[in-house]
Simulated assay, not measured.
Amino acid sequence: MAKTSGGVRSKSSSRGRVTDYHRGGDRGGIFMNGEKSYIATTASSSKTFKTHNGAERWLESFGYKRGKARR
């Protein structure tokens, strides 16, 4: 995992970048899906979005918070 300037853990792969989210013991995340869409996942569901901001708002509506980088 690489640290970003915003303090959020991200992982580069052939599919793109991952932003981690958490809610208690549950984990979620936002994945790049190609160049023009994002997939947000929770412990029980997932949804595709056109923007990263839309995916963030959806995760936050379930009470998920952005993950913190490990030091």
Rank of each mutant, 00 (worst) to 15 (best):
G67Q: 06
R66T: 14
K50D: 14
K11Q: 10
H52N: 15
F49C: 00
R9H: 09
R9P: 15
F49K: 02
R71F: 11
S5V: 04
L59A: 01
R27N: 09
H22F: 08
K36Y: 08
G54S: 12
S46L: 07
T19F: 12
S10G: 13
T48D: 07
D26H: 07
S45Q: 15
R57Y: 09
S14T: 03
I30P: 03
R15T: 08
G6S: 12
H52A: 11
D26A: 12
K11F: 08
K11M: 09
R66H: 01
Y21R: 07
M1N: 11
R71S: 13
W58R: 01
G54H: 02
N53V: 15
A69W: 08
G6Q: 13
Y38G: 02
S10R: 05
T51I: 00
G24R: 01
A40C: 00
G28S: 05
K47G: 00
S13V: 02
G63Q: 00
K3C: 15
V18P: 02
K65V: 08
I39G: 00
N33S: 15
W58V: 04
K50P: 06
A40F: 00
W58K: 05
D26Q: 07
G24E: 08
G29I: 10
T48Q: 14
T19K: 09
G24P: 00
T4D: 14
I39L: 12
G29K: 12
V18R: 13
G54D: 11
H22E: 07
A43C: 02
G16F: 02
K50A: 14
W58N: 00
G7T: 03
G28P: 00
G54K: 03
T4G: 12
K68M: 10
G24I: 02
M32R: 13
G24F: 05
R27T: 13
A55D: 04
A69T: 01
I30G: 04
S10I: 05
I39T: 10
F49M: 04
V8R: 13
A43G: 04
H52D: 15
K65H: 09
N53C: 09
T48S: 14
G29S: 07
K68H: 13
T19Y: 11
Y64P: 01
K3H: 05
